[in-house]
Design a protein around this nucleic acid. Structure first.
Lengths: 142, 142
DNA sequence: CTTTCTATGCAGCAAATTTGCATAACCTCA
DNA sequence: TGAGGTTATGCAAATTTGCTGCATAGAAAG
């Protein structure tokens, strides 16, 4: 019902307001704020909201895009889409450079890349490959 | 069900093909075409399709009348592809503009966009997001 | 006013979504 | 490599949403 939306809003608030390290913590904070939810639901919410865990804490999606996340290569953010895509957001004009860097790295789970102005579509073989691909790319370009 | 979509398509065809003066007529024509529906449903369909009654007959909505649903922004059509992609067809050369507009809107379920000449690939997080993303984009750009 | 036509509240049904539980998968650190 | 902590997910139950027909209110035409 409206419950989900409210919960997700609170999650964003909480993450923005204080350091949150685990979904357990988040679940407890939510409860204190009057919203009951299981870790399962929190996990799904985070996925849906695009919240990612960086350096041991959960970070807001837009914060990840701007702020500190920028790498020397112009890579701002990495996110999974569906089963076989990873989307890289880059600083304007640098998408091609990022794509080239990724191609050069020859990551085995990556099938191909396609760059626009500030976005790269990265095709991976399957769902399983997404996470490790994201990890490797992030490592590579940061 | 798929039934509704089929029925609405037939309604548009019928209205385009011959003069239709009442919902009763439409209901009967539909039945002859193998689609049963009550006047209630027909009424709701017409509302939803944007069909209006003018000078005693139902006429196609503006978009359908001139054969292209072009919006002010050059967006022609939106369609889902697979679980995590939405494809936007645009007027030639306007794909980038459409993509930028979509990016600016910051629709949360959209992960990234990639524009060609007349097509934009729009990556969404998951299947569930497609529907709402399409709705929001269409709303935004029409 | 009467007749004809269209819109809508309501209830039932079907489909889709959301959720918790249990547990598998994964990660970190020693 | 294994233990312990953390996160993801298959499944079934619960909940919500969407679509429809029926009955009827409301509007338009004459």
């Amino acid at each position: 019902m409206m419950e989900k939306e409210k919960r997700q809003q609170k999650i964003l608030n909480l993450i923005g307001a204080k350091r949150v390290g685990t979904q357990q913590e988040l679940t407890e904070s939510l409860l204190r704020a009057g919203v009951f939810a299981t870790q399962s639901s929190v996990s799904r919410d985070l996925e849906e909201l695009g919240v990612v865990k960086q350096r041991g804490r959960y970070v807001l999606p837009q914060a990840a895009r701007n702020g500190n996340g920028a790498s020397a290569h112009g890579l701002l953010n990495l996110e999974a889409a569906g089963d076989a895509l990873v989307i890289a957001k880059c600083e304007p004009g640098l998408a091609s450079a990022v794509a080239v860097a990724i191609d050069r790295a020859d990551v085995p789970e990556i099938v191909g890349t396609l760059a626009g102005e500030d976005t790269v579509f990265i095709a991976v073989r399957e769902k399983k490959a997404q996470r490790s691909a994201i990890k490797k790319i992030w490592e590579l370009l940061s």
